[in-house]
Design a protein around this nucleic acid. Sequence first.
DNA 1: CAGCGGGCGTTATACGTAAAACTTCCTGGG
DNA 2: CCCAGGAAGTTTTACGTATAACGCCCGCTG
Lengths: 347, 347
Amino acid sequence: MSNATPSRPTSRDVARRAGVSQATVSLVLRERWRGRVSPARAAAVREAVRELGYRPNLAARTLRLGRGRTALVVVPALTNEFFARMHAGAVRVAAEHDVGVVLYSPPTGIGRAADPFASAGATLDGVLASSMAAEALAALSGDGMPLVMLDSEPGDGAAATVNPDIATGMRLVVRHLLDLGHRRFAHIAADVPSWTFGVRARVLADELATVPGARLVTTERAPIDVTGGLLAAERALADAHRPTALVCDDDLQAAGACKAARRLGIRIPDDLSVTGFDDLAVATAVEPELTTVSLPAEELGAAGMRALLAALAGERGGTTVLPVTLTPRGSTAPPPPAGGRTNAPAP
Amino acid sequence: MSNATPSRPTSRDVARRAGVSQATVSLVLRERWRGRVSPARAAAVREAVRELGYRPNLAARTLRLGRGRTALVVVPALTNEFFARMHAGAVRVAAEHDVGVVLYSPPTGIGRAADPFASAGATLDGVLASSMAAEALAALSGDGMPLVMLDSEPGDGAAATVNPDIATGMRLVVRHLLDLGHRRFAHIAADVPSWTFGVRARVLADELATVPGARLVTTERAPIDVTGGLLAAERALADAHRPTALVCDDDLQAAGACKAARRLGIRIPDDLSVTGFDDLAVATAVEPELTTVSLPAEELGAAGMRALLAALAGERGGTTVLPVTLTPRGSTAPPPPAGGRTNAPAP
DNA sequence: CAGCGGGCGTTATACGTAAAACTTCCTGGG
DNA sequence: CCCAGGAAGTTTTACGTATAACGCCCGCTG
């Protein structure tokens, strides 16, 4: 177990053991030996590799090849379940292709974009970035490093973009509520600038504009957490012309909104309908369960990584849009009878 | 934008530009120039570095030095909020010390431990592993790679171990319930083998044993999610001799348990007390909010990374235990008056 | 004045791998 | 019989960095 040399075996050690030259070992291991090395020797090399437990030194390989097999994944916040799931999908695909993943999560929002590249530097082959601002692109595209954007504004700098069909998701939510009879809406919006939230706000407004009498009473910006949703809902419901439907940008906010309503004695879904977004674990943890939009988070990350691998291989991909579905649950229902009026006549 | 040579500048390019040799550049950049390079030349080198936007090639540096500045972090499942927060803490500390982080999350539970080392190989300097089985140690300790365990059984193979004070956490939960008057308990336990869950079960049993009349009616194993907790609670509450307190290993399970109870017409906390563990976001999303144990997840990851950095520097650390706190909320209360009897008299 | 040590720099080499360039041997066709 | 050409290897070199080993020059001292 403990030899004189506890250091890792090199390809030269393998060569010595197999009785061949180091070059031959390299040829065999790189599967470049068709018509270059006899099958018998190749087998001997592989046997020696097995016996010594040899693993190629990645630093040396990367140095020699000019590129490694490592992708940088940038996510704003891993503690957000959606990003975590996206990341899991990306890591899974990367692992399948024997590509390592280095994670970068900006300490304070989307800020200093140069840092991760300084630390992971030349060993990186590509970048998979989620929900990032455009200025971060500049630092990268100049380096000729393939960049795939996830959940972001499709732009020129990226080799490819993979997005969930947010527009359709929000459209389904609004239609669902309109079909139930709702006309007075409030939007609890995420307080961070991001493509996905921009789309949600725009589609919400657009859809309401197509229905006479329907209107957006108020938009409240809030952090993406339970407390944020709670406080925002309190503000939204304080309005005399109270909305009957609360459209939230996130399930956590929706859960908070439900708490706020209950504290005000407003029943869900009888008096107020609430919708979330993303279909996180919390959506089925609360009561009533949240009507929400299910996003294929894992598949999004997986597709993003596949696009990045394709880009590394030279292919140039466009924008991929993944389908989303509306998942109706218990937090939405027709508005109360007086839903159309301000002062409700008692039945 | 597009030069003849789009490739990264090397230290030789910097040397040429500054009118010095490549060795001098290296000396300046490594801060090894005290009495070796004149301040004027050093400044010139730094100027050239700035102008060219030079970044050292990490692969070459790693190859030369025999070690890099990269740590492997192994977590069972990033989509678990607790692990995500732990990981965030570890990444933060690593970034502060200019150390890169490679993430490995086993595709299927805690399984093949050799894989990540194959893919990240020789460039790794140390490993920070969470909730891993002991056999994974073997593959590593032999390589002489420092290993720090998080949230795991303190063992010999690791350079250091950092754990939350799970025993105290569970003790606080049980005392809290006992003080409220509960005597019939059920345990909804995580169905994965892990140090932390073993401790919880043991402490729960031990504490109940110290109080005459107190007993554990049943232990139900369940996956760590809402549905798992829901189904387990249904089983636990089907018992004729129904428990008055449900101790869950995780907040998600506790949330599911609350749903199950409500479906059975059991009020929380009036008829049944439920406790969670970890203090995840869901704990305050549900109603009533969950009484739970707050674990310092970020700090755990941060302390683990600090221990790993210390180990890389040659220091040998022991076991660090981080304090936890009980966070009482609305899901616990004294048992109903008939709590001691099986057939409750209708009031 | 010769020697010599210290400040300032350069040249040369090693890390482990990949692959181009080269050598050797063998077979078959003209 | 001789040579083209391919199979089967080996030798050599390059990747970019860090540092050991080596000069050179200047001022100081015996």
